[in-house]
């Protein structure tokens, strides 16, 4: 476990589209221990869906590879989400993050990174062409009065 993490879980699964729904539900289940609001849970599910779909669609366009989803609770009520693939990689990350930039044809809109940015507090994309992509997102959840 990472030094400052209070709790963490790592999931690995093959890059099949049926795992997209699983990944976002798993992330929401894990986040439940942080007592999130309904809106925060939806934000988390949306961001995970975008990152995992990218790994499946763009990371491994013509093969099944492994996707790793890491979920962490960090001090300060911060949820850290990491989605990693060992696929094709992104030649120009800055360009890829621009709204409407897509290499996915008309089935994609090029808005995934924009949505991740808007739904999370922080988005970090590291990628090496031919080696893979790691997307790390952080979101601070609103502190809530404990009723227990």
């Amino acid at each position: 476990m990472k030094k400052n993490a209070l709790n963490e879980v790592t999931l690995t699964f093959p890059s099949r589209s049926s795992n997209e729904g699983f990944a976002r539900s798993a992330a929401a289940c894990f986040a439940a221990q942080m007592d999130p609001t309904l809106n925060e849970l939806e934000d988390i599910k949306t961001a995970v869906s975008e990152a995992v779909t990218n790994a499946i669609v763009h990371g491994y366009p013509d093969a099944i590879g492994t996707v790793t989803l890491k979920l962490r609770v960090c001090p300060g009520n911060i949820l850290e989400l990491t989605v990693k693939d060992k696929g094709r990689g992104i030649p120009d990350v800055e360009k890829a993050r621009q709204p409407m930039f897509t290499t996915g044809g008309e089935e994609r809109s090029g808005m995934g990174f924009t949505i991740m940015e808007s739904f999370m507090d922080q988005l970090l994309v590291r990628s090496v062409p031919g080696r893979g992509t790691t997307v790390t997102m952080k979101k601070k959840l609103a502190p809530r009065l404990k009723t227990k």
Partner: peptide, 13 residues
């Protein structure tokens, strides 16, 4: 019950 960017492509289509 849930929609991500895939729904945007659908609406634009």
């Amino acid at each position: 019950t849930f929609m991500d960017s895939s729904g945007i492509a659908l609406i634009l289509k």
